[in-house]
């Protein structure tokens, strides 16, 4: 079943629609990415870019209806998942791939203790006794560095702080030792000091267990600190994909560059102007023809409105979906590539 050369997870040309008739929203329009064991792929995008829908499709938890998968392929270790037996997919979830969410409070059931919810997996998927499962749950809490795990295992979600809840969610998702973890905005709801703890924890766990990590986020800072490779999404497409260092130093897509110019940074020199991307992201039920980004792009030419730019190789495993990508990678005119570092 396992093909030696295949990636841990490979998504190819994924298409997903929502709604009917004139209101049909094309949420994914040919998304493809892959992730291997032990590496972190960051999927970067703003709301509505389709980054979460892709993850849900991979996990097989997309609500259909209203969603409709209209094409593409999702392969886990070479095994096609789209159209696979639902029972098989259910088995893969937790065992092989797991997901954590932004809102850990609503992802935990308030009426059961945290330990009970983690233990459930050991009881029902591993056939452990209640007592053994609770002991394993405590070990899991310990693994995610929750102090006094043995006592806290009996506490309820509301007794946990935001950061601890997210830790508990991570413990739950890692209980069955999955090979792939999808983290959907895991730190967006948390404070920066706690966010840093959680990101470090995820990074350590990934290294220790050699699992593949897909980090879905809108935060360019978080991405820069942990990602090996980055896929940038816009209007249901991957518009750029490369390793982290290349992406930040030589973005090949004007959208990527626009994002970077939009972020106010702590290490900015005072008075540095933000250069926002003008306009709004397109409505997914009326994506502009040609390049979906062209109405907001300062460099758009006639061809941009006419032809959809394909994601093409620019060399050095760097792909961008822009007709003029080479130009942007090469010149990078007035943009300071590195900001001054806070030091005196």
């Amino acid at each position: 079943m396992t093909v030696a050369a295949s990636h841990l997870l490979e998504v190819e040309d994924l298409h997903v629609e929502f709604g009917q008739g004139r209101d049909t929203a094309s949420v994914l329009n040919g998304v493809g990415y892959h992730v291997d064991e032990g590496e972190t792929l960051a999927v970067l995008g703003e709301s509505g870019s389709g980054k979460s829908v892709t993850a849900q499709t991979v996990m097989g938890i997309l609500d259909t209806p209203p969603g409709r998968i209209t094409g593409g392929s999702v392969r886990f270790r070479g095994e096609e998942l789209l159209g696979a037996d639902p029972e098989r997919r259910r088995m893969l979830r937790g065992e092989s791939m797991a997901m954590i969410f932004q809102d850990a409070l609503s992802a935990l059931n308030p009426v059961y203790s945290v330990g009970f919810q983690i233990a459930e997996q050991f009881r029902f998927r591993r056939g452990m006794s209640r007592k053994d499962a609770m002991a394993r749950a405590a070990e899991m809490l310990d693994l995610v560095r929750i102090p006094n795990a043995k006592q806290r295992v009996r506490e309820y979600p509301h007794q946990f702080s935001g950061g601890m809840r997210q830790r508990a969610m991570i413990a739950m998702s890692l209980a069955l030792d999955p090979e792939l973890l999808i983290a959907d905005e895991p730190t967006t709801a948390l404070d920066v000091t706690v966010q840093a703890q959680i990101m470090e924890l995820l990074d350590e766990l990934r290294r220790e267990r050699g699992m593949g990590l897909i980090l879905i986020t809108h935060d360019l800072g978080v991405v820069a600190e942990v990602a090996d490779r980055i896929a940038v999404m816009y209007a249901g497409r991957i518009v750029e994909h490369t390793d982290a260092a290349t992406l930040y130093a030589h973005p090949g897509h004007p959208y990527t560059r626009g994002l970077m110019d939009s972020v106010p940074r702590v290490d900015d020199v005072a008075g540095a102007a933000l250069r926002p991307i003008p306009g709004l992201p397109p409505s997914l039920s009326a994506i502009p023809p040609g390049c979906p980004f062209h109405p907001r792009c300062a460099h758009a030419e006639d061809v941009c409105a006419a032809e959809v730019p394909l994601l093409r190789e620019l060399g050095g495993d760097h792909q961008a979906a822009c007709h003029f990508a080479e130009r942007f990678v090469a010149e990078d005119p007035d943009r300071p590539t590195t900001h001054e570092v806070v030091s005196r």
């Binding site: 840093a196 800072g221 930040y248």
Partner: peptide, 24 residues
């Protein structure tokens, strides 16, 4: 707080001083 804020520049990875606060 300042050291916890991620900076969008991979070239600084591992080179910024990290003060990690414990707990909440």
């Amino acid at each position: 707080l300042l050291s916890s804020v991620p900076v969008p520049d991979p070239s600084l990875r591992g080179r910024r001083e990290a003060i990690r606060l414990e707990g909440d």
